[in-house]
Design a protein around this nucleic acid. Structure first.
Length: 256
DNA sequence: AACTCTTGCAACCGCAAGATA
DNA sequence: CTATCTTGCGGTTGCAAGAGT
């Protein structure tokens, strides 16, 4: 019995099918118990990995695409106030994630650094900027072109840190709030791995969000859909389940 | 047209804080 | 009150697409 401890844990890029699966189970169980979701979903991922994928990519509230100039300005402004407190900054930019902002910042700083280099060091002889990227990308410890030192500024940490309880925009509350539109679709996706684009999923989720009623319709389907669920749950989390099912069936019996 | 370098982004890791037993 | 487990954060890395030669 020692060999089936935790099977192989998958790493690296997520497949579309994994995404669909994760969305499905997060919609079902909420976005708090990540270990639980990871187990129950059958995904060979850690809870951590699932959370990250959800927060940074799958969450319906996410904006995609380039940051607007206003957003960019806000990032710079807030960063000058708070330093590398990416998640805090992200809370002020609805639809943007800390990861995204962090990436944007690094890119931004790299650009600035390069501009500086060029203006400061005249293009006299064939400047040796052909070295590897790492050599000209000290963006990490960038002394920030503005006028402060990110992590050295004690004022930064003692600012208005009153927002401890402020939840991120991507919080679904951990309870059943909406119902994913998958159903048997999942089967199809399993085969072609591409039938159901994430864009479609967003649309559907929005739709379903308005009509949570569909929950009534699935009181049992879920158990057919995922037979493994029951035994997994026993192992996974025996104490929260009663509450969960309570709410779950309450809502379906109430309305049905 | 082929190849190399650069850029942007997604995902991982380790650590710390918070929650729960 | 302490120990253990889970979640969240910030830093870092690796890869794919795009730009340049």
């Amino acid at each position: 019995m020692g060999k089936m401890a935790q099977e192989e844990i998958r790493k690296g890029p997520w497949t579309e099918h994994e995404d669909v699966q994760l969305v499905f189970y997060v919609n079902l169980f909420g976005d708090r118990r990540w270990d639980f979701v990871a187990k129950v979903s059958g995904l060979k991922r850690t809870g951590k990995s699932c959370r990250l994928r959800w927060v940074n990519y799958l969450h319906p509230g996410l904006k995609r695409g380039k940051m607007t100039p206003q957003e960019e300005r806000l990032v710079l402004e807030l960063h000058s106030k708070w330093g590398n407190r990416w998640s805090r900054i992200a809370r002020k930019l609805p639809g943007r994630t800390d990861n995204e902002i962090k990436n944007y910042w690094r890119t931004h700083m790299r650009k600035k650094a390069q501009e500086r280099k060029q203006t400061m060091s005249p293009p006299s002889s064939g400047s040796n900027c052909s070295s590897s990227a790492s050599s000209n990308a000290p963006a990490d410890s960038m002394p920030n072109t503005e006028s402060f030192s990110p992590s050295n500024n004690p004022a930064v940490d003692s600012m208005p840190v009153k927002e401890t309880k402020e939840r991120s925009f991507y919080d679904t509350g951990g309870d059943i709030e909406m119902w994913a539109p998958m159903g048997k679709k999942d089967k199809e996706v399993e085969e072609s791995d591409k039938v159901y684009s994430m864009d479609d999923i967003w649309k559907d989720i929005d739709l379903e969000n308005d009509t949570i009623k569909s929950i009534q319709a699935m009181a049992s389907p879920i158990w057919n859909y995922c037979p493994d669920l029951l035994w997994m749950m026993e192992e996974a989390d025996s104490k929260m389940f009663p509450t969960m099912t309570d709410q779950f069936f309450a809502s379906s019996t109430l309305t049905g």
